[in-house]
Simulated assay, not measured.
Amino acid sequence: MNPRIDEELDFSHLLTVKTEPILIFRTYIFTVLAKKILITEQQSFLKRNIQVTFPEAYVKVIQQALIFLERDLLQTQMVMAKRNMRVNLSPKIKADRTYTYACWLDGKILYTGGPSNRLKTEVLRYVQFYLNREGEAR
């Protein structure tokens, strides 16, 4: 990743005992949802529901994105396991299309979520991030 981008995305100065678990929690939820979107996209392509100009490149980009995403997801799950965090991936949906996710940490329940359009925007940012990592060498 570009060092300048790393500096721009460095939020460590904002982390506190209260905000860090929420950030980990939200990262996990968005990563899981991004993975579902990429897998659905890949399955649609394999079923020939999607027509693309360069099928080999399309498959390669999605597969690479899934590899990077899975690696980050495993690291997030390891951090969560060390902290004994358990997440319920089934959100509670309110009438105003607000989604709320729950996480258990040290006997407390943390909640996060928001309006469906805001969550959709965040998840799509994650999808785009992983699709753009295709050219990155590790």
Rank of each mutant, 00 (worst) to 15 (best):
I62M: 07
K47Y: 08
A34D: 12
V127N: 09
V17R: 13
T98R: 06
Y130A: 06
G113L: 04
A65S: 06
I37H: 11
Y130G: 03
S116G: 06
N132V: 05
R4S: 06
V123G: 08
E70Y: 09
L15C: 08
R118D: 11
T40M: 03
L131F: 14
T27S: 12
N88G: 04
L23W: 04
M80F: 05
E136T: 13
A65P: 13
K47I: 05
E122W: 02
A65N: 03
S90Q: 15
C103M: 15
A57L: 15
V59Y: 01
Q77C: 06
L124E: 05
N49R: 11
R133F: 09
W104S: 09
Y99C: 06
S12V: 01
E7C: 09
Y99R: 00
I93W: 00
L89G: 08
R26H: 02
Y58P: 12
L110C: 01
S116T: 12
L110Y: 13
E136P: 04
P115D: 09
R97C: 05
V79E: 01
R86I: 08
E20N: 05
F45A: 03
E122R: 11
E70Q: 15
K18L: 11
I39T: 12
D72L: 07
L131D: 02
V17I: 10
V32M: 03
L89T: 11
L38G: 05
T121C: 02
Q75N: 14
I39L: 12
V123Y: 07
G107W: 14
L74M: 14
M78L: 11
L110M: 12
M80Q: 10
K35T: 02
I37K: 12
I24K: 01
R26T: 10
E8A: 08
D6W: 14
M1L: 11
A81S: 07
T31A: 08
D106Y: 04
Y111F: 07
E20K: 09
F11M: 06
L14T: 15
